[in-house]
Design a protein around this nucleic acid. Structure first.
Length: 284
DNA sequence: ATTCAGGTGCGAG
DNA sequence: CTCGCACCTGAA
């Protein structure tokens, strides 16, 4: 491909925003992050993102509408300076923010986010990525510049369990297919959680097979922007127990309620910083 | 060969 | 309602 003719865009960045930290802290599965940037798919295009001084360089996209959507997806419009100043009133967060600062909350597509976290349950990251890659290749539309779109719920819903298990979904195959069918038939309205209170939106998601407390909160936070959601995974559980409960074990429900009441609408950000800090500094 | 991995569903008390 | 246990499967 000729060098100078490639589509390219620039997104301005302000505050402590940290692109690679945001893309590699486990909110989304689709990004391949290396030393200089991240590669993935957005707006039906294969793109590459590179952090620059005060900006994010976007290769593979140049129309204003897509770039604006990308900025929103990446959380570039979030007031991280003020958010982190508020979080730093908490002594634990004040300490760990020195190494976790700049994490924004992505605004992911609800279906893709939901599917990804259903697959993530009791799984490990390499295998989650293997599964998602196979699902894309087998059920996703091939993209112009290479790569595959994330499969539509119709495609997953129509797949045989055998074909899904071929994507190493294991026992999650029937869960994912059932969720896909509820979405594609309209039994589940994925726009509804945008306009529902936390508890109701959460109940809706919990009704889905393969969706429990943790996955529901992940989707509420990473797709619906519900900042009051606080997903409790094994790492966050360890972090909260160690740093807020003197190492004493607590039920996940108790941890979630403690954090939601302590951090309010910023609970989701608190969770991200605790998660990053736990994964990078805690050894168990 | 065993063990582990970013939870969930299910039955029991 | 809270608790304990089994669970597909690739990778170490």
């Amino acid at each position: 491909m000729a060098g100078g003719t490639r589509r390219r865009g620039i997104l301005p960045v302000r505050g402590p925003y940290h692109l690679l930290r945001t893309l590699s802290c486990g909110q989304a599965f689709g990004w391949r992050v290396d030393g200089t940037g991240a590669a993935g798919v957005f707006a039906q295009r294969r793109i590459r993102l590179t952090p620059r001084r005060g900006a994010v360089e976007v290769d593979g996209l140049d129309d204003a509408a897509s770039l604006e959507r990308l900025a929103h997806y990446l959380g570039l419009d979030q007031p991280l300076r003020a958010i982190e100043r508020e979080l730093a009133r908490d002594a634990v967060l004040a300490r760990i923010l020195r190494t976790t600062s700049g994490v924004a909350i992505l605004r992911q597509d609800p279906w893709e986010c939901l599917a990804g976290f259903v697959i993530s349950a009791f799984n490990n990251i390499p295998k989650i990525e293997l599964t998602l890659d196979r699902l894309r290749r087998r059920f996703g539309a091939p993209l112009p510049g290479g790569g595959y779109a994330f499969p539509q719920p119709e495609a997953i819903g129509a797949a045989s369990e055998r074909a899904l298990r071929g994507c190493v979904l294991g026992y999650r195959a029937p869960y994912l297919r059932a969720v896909a069918r509820r979405v594609s038939t309209g039994t589940l309205d994925l726009r509804a959680p945008f306009s529902l209170p936390y508890d109701e939106a959460r109940r809706m998601l919990l009704d889905l097979p393969g969706v429990g407390d943790k996955v529901a909160d992940c989707v509420l936070l990473f797709a619906y922007g519900r900042g009051d959601a606080f997903p409790v995974d094994v790492w966050v559980k360890r972090a909260v127990e160690r740093w807020y409960f003197r190492g004493r074990a607590q039920a996940e429900r108790r941890i979630r309620e403690f954090a939601r009441s302590r951090f309010g609408s910023l609970a989701g950000y608190a969770q991200q910083h605790l998660f990053v800090a736990a994964r990078t500094t805690l050894r168990f």
